[in-house]
């Protein structure tokens, strides 16, 4: 479904600073894949490269066999790539219903819009006409963000640190949402950038990124032993000792 071939991304910072280095990765259909790794390892940059928000400085990205490296965000979205932001964006004046309509690409009835909100655990009637502004909490925004991505029915959905900025209570609900997604994955794929053990636990495949490079790829059982005791492992919530710090 998605294939990254030798993808690199660097920025000018006095010299060339390479944030993503020569990453090659394939994400198959029906897979729930988590990319993890320490802060600054290039995870979010990689997610943005896939969505087209950033353009690689080297390598190619293929989606369903098509080279999409030079395609815009819009063109990638139209081909079926969805992206959920780490920090959801606020819009003065646009309501939750408006955003769900845009996401669905057509008029959607209130009852359909409510279905998406219910899926993310929001009481639809309380939210459907709310403006997506500062009156919503971080957890509410996050769930609305996920609802808009669900409404798109994309082939590949990329979530950039869905757990960031939400409270513990919202996090429990978030895990439940991802467990449901994992169950109903059908012909799509899900790619999540995350540090959280409970999200890693439901992954088919875990990709560990460190200093912009792939350190290891495999199932949970394959990856855990390789990263425990390393910088990547310590920063993630692997094991009891590390969990206390999370």
């Amino acid at each position: 479904m998605l294939e990254l071939k030798n993808v690199s991304f660097s920025v000018e910072d006095g010299g060339q600073l390479e944030i993503v280095r020569d990453v090659s990765l394939t994400i198959e259909k029906n897979k729930f894949v988590v990319i993890t790794g320490p802060n600054g390892s290039g995870k979010s940059t990689l997610a943005k490269l896939i969505a087209g928000i950033l353009t690689p400085t080297g390598g190619q990205i293929f989606f369903d066999g098509e080279d999409i490296t030079g395609l815009s965000i819009t063109e990638r979205a139209k081909r079926g790539i969805g992206f959920a932001f780490q920090a959801p964006v606020r819009f003065k004046g646009l309501t939750v219903h408006d955003l769900l309509k845009i996401a669905a690409g057509q008029e959607i009835s209130v009852s359909n819009a409510c279905t998406y909100l219910s899926e993310v655990g929001l009481c639809a009637k309380d939210y459907i006409d709310r403006e997506i502004n500062a009156s919503l909490s971080g957890g509410e925004l996050k769930r609305i963000e996920i609802a808009t991505v669900l409404a798109r029915k994309t082939k590949l959905t990329v979530f950039d640190e869905p757990e960031a900025g939400i409270d513990l209570w919202s996090f429990q609900n978030l895990i439940r949402i991802f467990e449901d997604m994992r169950r109903d994955i059908k012909d799509s794929s899900i790619l999540i950038i995350s540090h959280q053990e409970r999200i890693l636990n439901i992954a088919d495949e875990i990709v560990v990124l460190e200093a912009g490079q792939i350190r290891s790829v495999g199932t949970k059982d394959e990856v855990y032993p390789q990263v425990l005791g390393t910088e990547a492992g310590e920063r993630m919530c692997f094991g009891q000792a590390a969990r206390k710090e999370c």
Binding site: A77, K78, L99, I102, A103, T148, R152
Partner: peptide, 13 residues
Amino acid sequence: EQLIKLMTLGLTE
């Protein structure tokens, strides 16, 4: 970021 968000939902700029 508002423009980018809506573009990820399939709208042109």
